[in-house]
């Protein structure tokens, strides 16, 4: 237990005495616990301009410190530490209904599209797998046809492993290599054009592999020899 300092005990006793002593006749009336000094002050503030004049009439307020002060300065806090706003307020909307409604409609539209498309177009099912009958041409699924197209140009280790591996690593490392902090399109023309070139390169390879490769994976024109492509 810490000792309560002598002067604080004295001050508390003095305040208690002051509160207990009836300074006015009305204070002894039952149930009225509001000190007269406060009532007087309320009355005075109601009177408006008479505040300053009325305050001394009530005497020293209850609980006042030395010199009659009712407030004490405990510490000075620099404004920056508590008042500085960290982030500008963000313009936000409620997720319901603004986002959920959009998501619901998008999901519904996609389901409808998939349903109708699946109703009209049948998925391919060719003859049962036969190890003794290799179809010509044999093609990978469309998303790998860019790789298969690379196979015509490079050694399989380069086309099938090294280049796609490098592509994946480059994608993963993109945020760590791109030191430009801006997300404004006009500030990132280099990265935008790099990605666009990458995508176009890939799309062209895939399209050639899909539609311009016939028997023996030789180059053909789809309008001349037909399309050798299954989804």
């Amino acid at each position: 237990m810490t000792e309560i300092p002598e002067h604080l005990l004295k001050r508390a006793q003095a305040a208690r005495d002051k509160a207990a002593s009836p300074s006015d006749a009305s204070a002894s009336e039952g149930g009225d616990r509001i000190p007269d000094a406060l009532l007087d002050r309320t009355k005075a503030s109601g009177a408006g301009a008479a505040v300053v004049a009325a305050a001394p009439a009530g005497g020293v307020p209850v609980g006042a410190g030395p010199g009659g002060h009712t407030q004490r300065l405990l510490t000075v806090v620099k404004s920056g530490s508590i008042q500085e706003a960290k982030a500008a307020p963000v313009d936000k909307v409620h997720t319901w209904p603004h986002l959920l409604a959009v998501e619901f409609v998008a999901g519904l539209a996609l389901t409808a599209f998939l349903f109708v498309f699946s109703w009209v177009v049948n998925a391919p099912l060719l003859q049962a797998a036969d190890f003794n009958n290799t179809p010509n041409p044999s093609k990978a699924p469309w998303y790998f046809l860019g790789l298969q197209e690379l196979l015509t140009m490079f050694h399989p280790m380069i086309a099938g492993v090294t280049l796609p591996g490098m592509g994946l690593v480059a994608l993963i490392l993109a945020p760590y290599l791109d030191r430009n902090a801006s997300n404004k399109p006009e500030d990132r023309k280099f990265m935008t054009s790099m990605m666009t070139m990458f995508l176009i390169f890939w799309a062209v390879l895939t399209i050639i592999g899909s539609f311009f490769r016939g028997p023996g994976f030789n180059f053909t024109f789809p309008w001349r020899d037909g399309i050798f492509f299954e989804l």
Binding site: P141, F144, A159, V161
Partner: peptide, 27 residues
């Protein structure tokens, strides 16, 4: 998508996956 491609076990599935996995062999 690629693993699902094999499951119908038709000519398309078998030979597409053959092409795809042959590439893997060159790792």
């Amino acid at each position: 998508s690629f693993t699902g491609y094999l499951l119908p076990w038709d000519q398309l599935a078998l030979w597409a996956v053959t092409v795809g996995t042959n590439m893997m062999g060159y790792t």
